[in-house]
Design a protein around this nucleic acid. Structure first.
Length: 135
DNA sequence: GCCAACGTTGGC
DNA sequence: GCCAACGTTGGC
């Protein structure tokens, strides 16, 4: 099982909306690296749910349900999406500044490749974020 | 609103 | 195949 971080601007699709919907098809990704990450996701993988622009914080954990499917919003078959469901909300959001200030998180894809909307996260990094959210 | 980082496009 | 121009993302 692998761990990921997925980004969304809250005004486009927020964690609250995911909780309301119960499930969401994560689509609209038009970056090859992000696409490859989506395609590598397996049923049960966990994703840190990050609000970009507004908030700039990890707010919850989403769970991948199923595997990648063609993205119907794309005009070519190259692009895929996955279904995600809310797993649980973090007790306290973990902000970008906090992540940056944590030396053990300096290698996170989120920091090294800020513009990538779907990034893999190591188990260690995942655990550290969760621990920070409970402080 | 600005700008850095980075991906994509297209001319050569 | 190189590189300049341009577009997008996202932090500040």
């Amino acid at each position: 099982m692998r761990f990921w971080l997925i980004k969304s601007e809250p005004y486009k699709y927020s964690w609250d909306q995911l909780e309301k919907d119960g499930i969401a098809f994560w689509d609209g990704v038009r970056n090859y690296q992000a696409r490859n990450n989506l395609a590598a996701m397996q049923n049960g993988d966990l994703c840190l749910f990050y609000h970009s622009n507004e908030g700039k914080e990890v707010v919850g954990i989403a769970r991948v349900t199923g595997t990648a499917k063609p993205d119907p919003t794309a005009d070519v078959a190259t692009w895929v999406g996955v279904d995600v469901a809310p797993h649980r909300r973090l007790k306290k959001p973990v902000g970008l500044a906090r992540i940056k200030s944590e030396p053990s998180l300096a290698q996170m894809g989120l920091l090294r490749q800020g513009r990538l909307s779907v990034v893999e996260v190591s188990r260690e990094e995942f655990d550290i974020i969760v621990a920070l959210s409970e402080q």
